[in-house]
Design a protein around this nucleic acid. Structure first.
Lengths: 356, 356
DNA sequence: CATCATATCTGTAACGTTACAGATGTCAAT
DNA sequence: ATTGACATCTGTAACGTTACAGATATGATG
């Protein structure tokens, strides 16, 4: 057996059929075949069907480069990722859903990690200017997101996971973080907790506002205390730091008796911090979190949570963007809001209860 | 402000410079500029430098479609992912490392989820036949991996995460699972555990053999017992099932006193199962795991682990594949083996000890 | 001085596709 | 028969790049 060579050298690579091949097989002009396969109305229906069938039989697949050169479109969607090193399970789930939609619609999904400590716009600019994709999926949106402004100004198709506060409307999919925060906080109140703390998103991201709105509303309505500290830990605080901060807080006089946590990893670190302080999570300090994977289901003690379906979010992002690209009306609204799904603690048989 | 339109209509999109633009600016022929930018030796060194500089000033970036049409190359690497729904944090880390290398080398990274219940070859075949990428990154390799055979037969560049048992050599990056299993098992033995169990990979994957080799060697050498059950849970058993199986086992007469776990999520579920059986992880049954994220650091009780750096693996996969594509000798060996990094339990201050 | 080798540059064609401007044929109305 | 309207199909050109086969100039060699 030959050793793996470093390039596909003596090319026996099966030459794939082109429009010309199909045209010859049909006895038609190349142009006709092109228009037939693109389902243009000025080609007889019968011809269109015949061409489609012959093309299928020959295994014809349009050449991306040829098409792209002519049309300027790439049939690629770019997913902008957090900078290298800050990529989490969230990313994986988004890719899973988005990738499925791309595959089903003949798009490539291109994953583009952001560059740390770099011009915020450099990645989007490179994609737009160099025509690396037909559309962009953004996450980690800020209220006045520069990237969104840039894309709007340049009239480049995109969809965001999360909203902005810009005057111009744009396609987006978001989790209802306000409802999540309200429901989570309410549940703590119902359990008699009176002194609450929120571990939310970085202040620069739009959804931190939503979380705070929901949290504060319930706190105010019930005349509760909420813990404010100088440098509050958030979802992107390194887990060890978050853990230490929580531990310190738990040993101070400002110790909370309930924590709402907008991310599952942060919740795990927070529980570790509570234990470090010699207290018992759930008993001394109740914790309630947003859940995006199965991990929380197997924690001890088990905690209540609200589920965000990231996989579904990825699918929605993809569908929205592709509809936008293909000039079809978006599915329902241009902006979709996904509601949290309440989950209750595990029973000891290991079953999750999901009540609606 | 205008509402977001669905396509970049009245195109004010900045026309990007082409080779022709650069050629005119330099007073040279298009061909010359092309060859200059490709650093061909039949262009005077001075000319090459001048052209490069003018091109940079004009912000020239080669058009992927034009180049691809002519050369047949896409400057894209495809990462094959587990089927939708089975994608985990592992994926995210691979993408993180691989994406970085792609960006630095002018490649796009295309993420391609596998299709469940479908022909095993369909995805690779589609990539190869339709020239969707210049090279492929595979994971979840089997001893007689059909995809690898197909790629070898078609002389298509690729690199695998994990090895095969095929006679033909191919580029790969692998974690030394045998060493991991040996070291993990040895550590349990040193703690006096005598009746051990391995939660490894699915039997169909090559590295399960490596895990078993390492595990069995230590078990045999120390004349220990190992637990064999009919349908042993593995890393891809749904977590609830794994948890129940472990719980049941712990209540039977074949209860292990130590578990080696080749994945962190499985370790978490196993610990939950131990607790379900009324036993204490670490005390009654010691657990030791392979670690790929920070999650395990914040478990209670904290457990020992061996770290696999997936981010670095992604980078290595990318570097290897790109070197292969560009005909440069691969970095060191064609096959790289990454050694496990021992990690010890957290101290109560929240610091991880990494000794070498 | 003629010849040849070498270094450096250039023009043409082609990759596969689609836009555009016709071309051809058919049929109905005049 | 002629015209026009329509349905259906076709040929040419172009997108940006690189392969290929020269072209030109320079200097060395006989």
């Amino acid at each position: 057996m030959p050793r793996q060579t470093s390039r596909s050298s003596n090319n026996t690579r099966r030459d794939r059929p082109t429009l010309r091949t199909v045209a010859q097989a049909c006895g038609l002009a190349v142009t006709t075949v092109s228009r037939a396969l693109n389902n243009r109305s000025d080609i007889a229906l019968a011809t269109r069907q015949r061409v489609r069938q012959v093309a299928d039989e020959l295994g014809y697949v349009p050449d991306r480069a040829g098409r792209g050169l002519r049309t300027g479109r790439t049939h690629t969607l770019s997913l902008l990722l957090a900078p290298q090193g800050e990529i989490t399970g969230y990313t994986a789930s988004i890719i899973s859903g988005l990738g499925e939609i791309c595959r089903d619609n003949g798009y490539e999904l291109s994953a583009t990690p952001d560059v740390r400590h770099h011009d915020e716009l450099s990645v989007v600019r490179s994609i737009v200017e160099n025509q690396r994709a037909d559309g962009i999926v953004l996450s980690r949106t800020a209220p006045q997101d520069l990237r969104v402004r840039y894309l709007l100004e340049n009239d480049f198709p995109f969809v965001t996971h999360g909203r902005t506060e810009l005057a111009t409307q744009h396609a987006s999919v978001d989790f209802n973080n306000e409802h999540f925060a309200e429901a989570a906080t309410t549940r703590l109140v119902q359990r008699g907790r009176r002194c609450l703390m929120l571990i939310g998103a970085p202040a620069s991201l739009t959804y931190q506002t939503h979380l705070l709105n929901g949290f504060s509303r319930i706190v105010t309505r019930n005349a509760l205390q909420s813990i404010e500290i100088d440098d509050p830990p958030n979802l992107e605080t390194p887990l060890n730091d978050l853990r230490r901060t929580v531990a310190r807080l738990c040993q101070s006089e400002r110790c909370p008796d309930g924590i709402v946590c907008a991310g599952e990893m942060a919740a795990i670190a927070a529980m570790a911090g509570i234990r470090d302080a010699g207290l018992a999570p759930t008993v001394d300090i109740d914790v309630i979190a947003k859940q995006t994977s199965a991990t929380l289901d197997h924690m001890t003690p088990s905690i209540d949570s609200f589920y965000e379906d990231i996989d579904a979010t990825g699918r929605l992002l993809g569908e929205t963007l592709i509809r936008l690209l293909e000039d079809r009306p978006p599915p329902g609204e241009l902006s979709v809001l996904i509601e949290p799904e309440p989950r209750y603690r595990l029973t000891d048989t290991g079953k999750t209860n999901t009540r609606t």
